[in-house]
């Protein structure tokens, strides 16, 4: 992974030197392990702060919304798809962006790792080949296979290589196919339940929610100037942690992402309670694919399905 880091620094430095961009957005190590954070480099001296490893799971497309500068941005497959969504939704212009594409082999799941060991993880190390991850803390050190600790969305990802980019930092990685992974296994399991079981399943899923809105803030799609949960005139949704309020929040937040969500997993990664928020967005992703043959963020030419009308749109549910 060091080669990725070096390449990102090198490209960023060149772009800033040539004045091609006003700043480069990338990742830097966080103050605690597994929590890499975004970094904005505005001059050549800053670029040494950039880093790349398996903890770059947040979505950088979140940081370009409505900006007016020329921006160089480090983008994994999912980030690039969200940039495409941003371009379609007029949140940024394509010619403002210089996309530094990063072929990605998935991000490690910090919730999974934390749960797998008793103590606090103080350091995380990946081997050069990207095969194993070593976590260590006060009185333990453990080495695990990287593929076993990937975030679920990364393990199921079909677009590991950036879909739009100006420059790639490495050779493209092999993509997974429908044959090699079953993307919607978890969704189908829920679909097969009875309404009562479904209700209980989501009751349990959301029972830990503290309404911190980290999932919303981490999401590149959630860029409304005033979010519906923050409005008070009218107040669309109750602000308590009553199960029904929590459910309405999650339902509406997910629905706002219908046909736009790229399953980047930023919501799950950011959740302090480790709730699998993707249980809802993945269902919407599946429906978009089944009803409209649509996967978000693969093109900048087409409007998303819920934004357009076609005579053959499915409408069996309307009586």
């Amino acid at each position: 992974m060091t080669s990725y880091t070096d390449k990102i620094r090198e490209i960023s430095k060149r772009l800033l030197k040539e004045g091609k961009v006003d700043m480069v957005i990338g990742f830097t190590k966080g103050s605690v392990p597994m929590m890499n954070q975004p970094m904005f480099a505005r001059n050549q001296n800053d670029v040494d702060g950039f880093a790349w490893d398996g903890n770059c799971g947040i979505n950088l497309a979140n940081y370009v919304t409505g900006r007016s500068e020329k921006i160089g941005i480090v983008a994994k497959g999912c980030d690039s798809r969200n940039l495409a969504v941003h371009i379609v939704e007029n949140k940024i212009k394509r010619d403002q962006l210089y996309i530094i594409g990063v072929p990605c082999t998935g991000m490690v799941d910090r919730h999974k790792l934390t749960a797998s060991v008793g103590g606090e993880i103080e350091a995380i190390e990946e081997d050069a080949a990207g095969k194993t991850v070593t976590i260590s803390g006060n009185d333990f050190s453990e080495t695990v296979d990287r593929v076993d600790v990937l975030q679920e969305n990364c393990a199921l990802c079909m677009h590991r290589n950036p879909v739009i980019y100006d420059e790639l930092i490495a050779e493209e990685v092999p993509e997974q196919t429908e044959e090699s992974v079953d993307r919607y296994e978890a969704v189908r399991k829920v679909e097969e339940m009875s309404p009562e079981e479904k209700w209980a399943y989501f009751d349990d899923l959301f029972s830990d929610c503290i309404r911190c809105y980290a999932c919303r803030n981490a999401c590149p799609l959630c860029y409304c100037p005033t979010c519906f949960v923050d409005e008070s005139k009218p107040q669309w949704v109750g602000k308590s942690i009553d199960p029904s309020d929590i459910r309405i929040f999650h339902f509406l937040r997910a629905y706002h992402c219908a046909g736009r969500c790229t399953d980047c997993g930023a919501c799950v990664r950011s959740c302090p309670m480790g709730i699998n928020v993707r249980a809802l967005t993945k269902k919407l992703e599946k429906d978009s694919l089944e009803y409209f043959g649509w996967e978000a963020g693969l093109t900048t030419e087409q409007r998303p399905p819920l934004d357009t009308y076609k005579p053959d749109d499915p409408e069996q549910f309307i009586k």
Partner: peptide
């Protein structure tokens, strides 16, 4: 929307479109 509501466990038949 109907799909997602039912996915969350609302009884089919509670929500109608016309």
């Amino acid at each position: 929307m109907k799909n997602l509501l039912e996915h969350m466990g609302i009884d089919p038949g509670r929500l109608h479109f016309s």
